[in-house]
Nucleic acid binder design. Sequence first.
DNA 1: TGTACATCAGTGAACGCGCGTTCACTGATGTAC
DNA 2: TGTACATCAGTGAACGCGCGTTCACTGATGTAC
Lengths: 207, 207
Amino acid sequence: MKDKKERPYHHGNLRAALVEAATGLIEERGPGGFTLREVTRRARVSQAAPYRHFRDRDDLLAAVVEQGFLGLSKVMSEVAASTHSPAERFRRCGAAYVTYALERTAHFQVMFRMEPDPEKHPAARAAADAAFGQLVGVVAACQESGVLPGRNARVVALIAWSLVHGIAHLAIGKQFQFKTRAEVLRFAGVATDALLEGLRVGNRPAK
Amino acid sequence: MKDKKERPYHHGNLRAALVEAATGLIEERGPGGFTLREVTRRARVSQAAPYRHFRDRDDLLAAVVEQGFLGLSKVMSEVAASTHSPAERFRRCGAAYVTYALERTAHFQVMFRMEPDPEKHPAARAAADAAFGQLVGVVAACQESGVLPGRNARVVALIAWSLVHGIAHLAIGKQFQFKTRAEVLRFAGVATDALLEGLRVGNRPAK
DNA sequence: TGTACATCAGTGAACGCGCGTTCACTGATGTAC
DNA sequence: TGTACATCAGTGAACGCGCGTTCACTGATGTAC
């Protein structure tokens, strides 16, 4: 293999390195801090180099988004495998979602900012859909085991996603007065349980 | 008064005009499309003019955010006054929130992007707090009339806010497959009812 | 095994652009006497 | 009512900057024979 000291002309895996550098940059400077030039500086590469691997700025950003959703999927599937109780799995998935958002704030924001039009970047879109698919699976399992009534799993998953996403987004935006991550997670638990209870009862509007 | 045709040297109410132009610009070009220079072009004023009224770019943007929250407060208080049933008020407030977000997409996004640090712009912060106050009031009314159990109204309001905010944010980000605004609102209604039901039952976790 | 050559993945300089902000200025307004 | 003057709210030109992207190029790699 190559000597690590002398940098070879060919990078080896510049594409991945650029995505990684971009992610780090976003995490450090916030969602708006992303520029192609700063990414190339971090990857120690000329400013024209990314164009070998990405069509343009947005194309690289879309790859960052894709990675974000892949990571989210991974975290959620790990968590889902950690228990056999469907209701508990539901709760843990919610907690994992919020945790992911709080741990990788800026990355999370970029994922949902859709500044690169998601329709033009099918890989990013697909990764997002896969993450949502995890959630639908968890809901379906709750339904099969009778913890939730057997209504449209997608709609139920969408409701749960909305709640947990709202918590994540508001927490990131400092709209809550919570001081620690643990407090946010405890709150998320209470909220998730309330929703689960309501979904369980069925969907009669309260008078 | 002045002849409308010949533009007077003094504008009259440039501050308000700039905020309005900025809002229009954001609505047209998206949350990232805001630039001071484009705002001055739209207000037909020199590019140095805003500095008479705003410290810098972020200061103007904060005024836009403030206006956004004032508008949201207004909409919610109007809606709250439209019925005497506390539960119905709860639902209508949720619908109003989502509607506001869908009608003024980009403006809504800017409000929660906190790109001007909210701590440095107390007026914006205060307007946001006032909007949340509306919601707390609605929840408290539900509790007083026995529709909801009398727990911490702020926490309950936070849960409701999270749900409705998540719906708004995901809908804006095209994460739902809904095609019309009416579909989103119907979905929001179902979600709100489920949550209300769960909150009503109390907060025992489901087994 | 050796060589010619196509292809790939980088470099480095340059482009044009729009941005936020500052500066010395000037026109309009309001007030004191 | 008239005038001097301070203050306010604009103008217009200029600054320096970092950005995304293009271009002709060159070094490294892989393959055919």
